[in-house]
Design a protein around this nucleic acid. Structure first.
Lengths: 199, 199
DNA sequence: CAAGTTACAAATTTTGACATCTGTCACCAA
DNA sequence: TTGGTGACAGATGTCAAAATTTGTAACTTG
């Protein structure tokens, strides 16, 4: 007996997100998802090739949800690039702190994917790197940064702020002084980016 | 019947290190250590208050083993501070890479202690920070660095190079490009440290 | 008394039988 | 043909019993 509602990918994703939130990434099964939808678990496999693929789709949706916030900051040409860079790096930290606080289970799911080198994670950092490169390119254009290759420079800045954006440090983001720490690192990096070319 | 050799702390540490190497940190028990020494496990407890204390003592010894290498680089006043800082940061990475490669079990044991916020770990980073501060102080003294507080600056530099010294990134140290990455971050940081005071 | 022993309770780990989950299949219905 | 089903094998997870380990204590010996 086929289900009344045709069951599309989005419905499955929503149910999965709910199950993930309730059970956590380790205990959430595709059988649970199917049960929540009132179908057999094989039906889910008609839409997603594997549990991994399902998790990736949910996580991608979840990450995209507030991707705009950061993009907006990165693209805000009203703010000079020097300040914008600092603001953006703080915003990245703030967004991740918020996600981990509001959705610890989905955050954990993301962590699992990142550990497995899923494209969800690499795509996400590629996105962030692109935004960062845009800020740096703006700065190079108006002369406030000395950076011949914006993308390469973005990677360097991102690496130097790994403590504030890399999942491996998520536990440390609870620390109250973390914002001040980022500020200090920002200051040093901005000094380096603004330094006049030494012949 | 008391053991022929009186069994001192150092003998226990050597045996523990051996057991740890053979069994790994999760499977190494103090019963194993006692068996290797031909005594009852209670004898070990006469010298070390707990398994934790024993592990810490072994790990501390293991860390101290080549602490001198880095200290030597940090204190080598024949090398100008700018180059010395870069060399030292690379050496920190190299030492950790070597340790993880030659002694993965003991490295894992260190990781466990670090995760448990053991003083072994905090003392170790305090030691490294001291060496780093010394280099920066030298640079401030001879005018090559602009740093009013060498210790604070050392902390910032250490944080900005977290990817190359923090345990959480150990897996990435296998990556062949890691040395080049550190080099790029070093260059940016050195630009910042050398920048002339800007107002 | 310093350094070891055996004996023991409590916590932890291992084990092994059992249940569930993942992914695939052949089949069914609109 | 798209979207669904139930049945299945093999991998993985669960859970309680059994074994081991941790840490302590009362006891022994030079």
């Amino acid at each position: 007996m086929p289900a009344r509602t045709p069951l599309d990918a989005n419905t499955i994703l929503a149910a999965t997100e709910e199950i993930l939130r309730r059970h956590g990434p380790d205990k959430a099964t595709v059988v649970d998802v199917a049960r929540a939808l009132g179908v057999s678990h094989a039906a889910v496999y008609k839409h997603f090739a594997s549990k991994q693929a399902l998790r990736e789709a949910v996580t991608r949706r979840w990450l995209d949800h507030n991707r705009g916030t950061l993009a907006l900051i990165a693209a805000d040409s009203a703010v000079p690039p020097v300040r914008r860079l600092r603001t953006w790096l703080h915003a990245v930290l703030a967004v991740k702190q918020a996600k981990i606080r509001e959705d610890p289970e989905l955050f954990a799911a993301y962590g699992i994917l990142a550990a497995a080198h899923s494209s969800v994670a690499t795509d996400h950092v590629a996105d962030l790197l692109g935004q960062l490169a845009a800020i740096i390119a703006d700065g190079a254009a108006d002369g406030s940064f000395r950076a011949d290759d914006a993308e390469a420079t973005a990677r360097v800045v991102f690496r130097a702020t790994a403590k504030f954006n890399h999942l491996a440090h998520a536990a440390e983001w609870q620390n109250p002084g973390i914002g001040a720490e980022l500020d200090e690192v920002c200051s040093l990096l901005l000094q380096g980016l603004q330094a006049p070319t030494s012949p």
